[in-house]
């Protein structure tokens, strides 16, 4: 490939990327703004069940295990310094600040994001979205908006659940099994976890991740090429893009939130 061709390809790729970002932006605005009708609330509730409640099992089970592993690993290190009393603090801070928002978002992308992409993509491929348009119902409002809002709301809630069961998992291993003093586990946590700094920042992170993951999932479904290959590619893209976006944004957000705490 000659240099000119390479430059042309780069330009074309950039234009395509910008075009797709523009479409995604307009798409987000058109579908997420506006006041829902009474039926809109019902549709949103149904999606909350599908997107949120159905993801509960995988998120909670993972939360328990991560809390348990965290506690076990933390203990083996802390005990060398005789600092196992700080276990509660360590488990709680790592979960609230990092692991709960990030891991819950990754699981959410895999469980709910991919399902959203495939569902919307299949609706597009079977012309259900087109037929809805022709009936005079805007699919952005009826299909997309409830799913977007269900994602925005449910991931932060799932993240809270993840932290809670993670801390409990850490308690099971640290206190019940390894014999760390129970009072130290809880009071260490109480003394070190700040509501705004730790709980609040973790929630802000998960809100950002919720927005990004749901947006990617729903847009990939809506914008895909309506063939079986197109659906499979879009589903893969949802998981890959969401995971990368979550991990990348996590670094940016962590720098902004905790960069000067050191």
């Amino acid at each position: 490939m000659s240099l000119v061709q390479r430059i042309a390809a780069l330009g074309r790729g950039t234009l395509e990327l910008l075009g797709s970002l523009g479409r995604a932006g307009v798409f987000l605005l058109q579908s997420s703004l506006g006041i829902p009708s009474r039926e809109g609330w019902y549709l949103w509730l149904r999606q909350m069940h599908f997107v949120g409640v159905m993801s509960l099992a995988i998120v909670l089970v993972s939360g328990v295990f991560i809390g348990m592993v965290l506690s076990l690993q933390g203990y083996t290190i802390l005990v060398d310094f005789g600092a196992e009393e700080a276990l509660g603090q360590m488990v709680a801070l790592s979960l609230l600040r990092e692991l709960a928002p990030v891991v819950a978002a990754l699981l959410f992308a895999g469980r709910a994001g991919s399902a959203l992409t495939a569902e919307i993509g299949l609706m597009k491929a079977t012309e259900q979205l087109s037929s809805m348009e022709m009936i005079g119902v805007d699919p952005l409002r009826r299909i997309i908006a409830p799913r977007l809002w269900a994602g925005f709301v449910s991931l932060p809630l799932l993240t809270v659940g993840f932290s809670v069961v993670g801390i409990w998992g850490g308690y099971l291993v640290g206190v019940e099994w390894l014999g760390v003093f129970e009072g130290a586990y809880w009071s260490g946590m109480q003394g070190s976890v700040g509501f705004f700094d730790d709980v609040g920042n973790g929630l802000v992170k998960s809100l950002v991740f919720a927005l990004v993951v749901t947006w990617i999932a729903v847009f990939q479904g809506y914008d895909l090429v309506p063939t079986s290959e197109g659906i499979s590619r879009a589903t893969t893209r949802t998981v890959v893009y969401s995971s990368l976006a979550v991990l990348g944004l996590d670094f940016v957000l962590t720098t902004l939130m905790f960069g000067e705490l050191g």
């Binding site: 012309e127 022709m134 009936i135």
Partner: peptide, 23 residues
């Protein structure tokens, strides 16, 4: 405008090749 277009479509019906029923 988008809203008017959707209003106009209420006066039309379309039969898709696949039927396109809501599954």
């Amino acid at each position: 405008p988008r809203r008017e277009l959707f209003r106009l479509r209420r006066r039309m019906g379309m039969l898709f090749q696949s039927g396109a029923l809501f599954s």
